[in-house]
């Protein structure tokens, strides 16, 4: 409903007057020329961090370099980034007291059959993408995005969050990714000297564990963001 109102208003959108457009256009063009010149002046190949990275790859626990960077070398970035996702859910929940469920219709025969086929398939693919992240492009975020797609399909097909899923359990699911990440980071303090420093022989398993929890938690977060507001909380005054 709200989306419809918005799209109507978009057509009568006001746009800045032409002198402003001309000025802004001119300034933007100047910025573009400056940036283009700067990039043009870059040397075509460069002294690379990749060689340092290649030398440490065997200690990272995975063989795909992007996963190694995300989960091990710069795992702290990823921890904060999962924090950003969780923060976005908290932010949207703090904003909307209204129940924000999408308009749905009970699924027809074809849709129902398709879902029964698609949801397990998507879950399987997500599991594969998560597993493949160790040696090929993939990993928690990609797998989480796939699971999110399954979740959104279910929601759009009139699938309601089960009432038995307590609000508290839902919140636990949302924070579990960051919580397990913090737990893994902290447990290294007992074994090791530095936060997030995984011993090379266990690094692969620890990363897989973190990624598994992250995948589930990320998809829960993204589905919650898709809903755009907190689900009804029976028994609470808010």
């Amino acid at each position: 409903m709200q989306i419809k109102v918005l799209s109507q208003k978009m057509e009568e959108d006001t746009i800045a007057s032409w002198p402003i457009r001309l000025t802004v256009g001119g300034i933007v063009l100047m910025i573009a020329v400056g940036l283009l010149y700067a990039i043009w002046s870059l040397s075509p190949d460069y002294a690379e961090l990749k060689w340092t990275l290649a030398a440490s790859m065997h200690e990272s626990g995975v063989s795909h370099p992007v996963t190694a960077v995300l989960m091990n070398f710069r795992g702290y970035d990823t921890l904060l980034e999962m924090g950003v996702l969780l923060l976005a859910v908290m932010g949207t929940w703090s904003l909307t007291p209204i129940k924000a469920a999408p308009e749905t219709h009970p699924p027809g025969l074809v849709q129902d059959g398709l879902l029964r086929l698609l949801i397990p398939l998507i879950t399987l693919v997500a599991g594969y993408v998560l597993w493949a992240g160790a040696y090929a492009p993939g990993g928690a975020f990609q797998a989480g995005a796939l699971l999110t797609a399954a979740g959104i399909l279910l929601l759009l097909s009139d699938w309601q969050l089960p009432a038995s899923l307590l609000p508290w359990l839902l919140r636990l699911l949302l924070v579990s990714g960051v919580a397990v990440f913090i737990g893994a980071a902290l447990s290294m303090l007992w074994l090791n000297t530095y936060l997030l420093a995984y011993p090379p022989q266990w690094a692969g398993s620890i990363i897989l564990l973190i990624e598994l929890c992250a995948t589930v938690s990320i998809s829960a977060i993204l589905v919650a963001l898709f809903l755009g507001g907190r689900p009804d909380e029976p028994g609470s005054t808010i």
Binding site: E48, L49, D77
Partner: peptide
């Protein structure tokens, strides 16, 4: 360069 790619993933999220 894998570090650039990791930065992009972080940025997208």
């Amino acid at each position: 360069d894998p570090i650039s790619h990791a930065m992009i993933i972080t940025g997208i999220v």
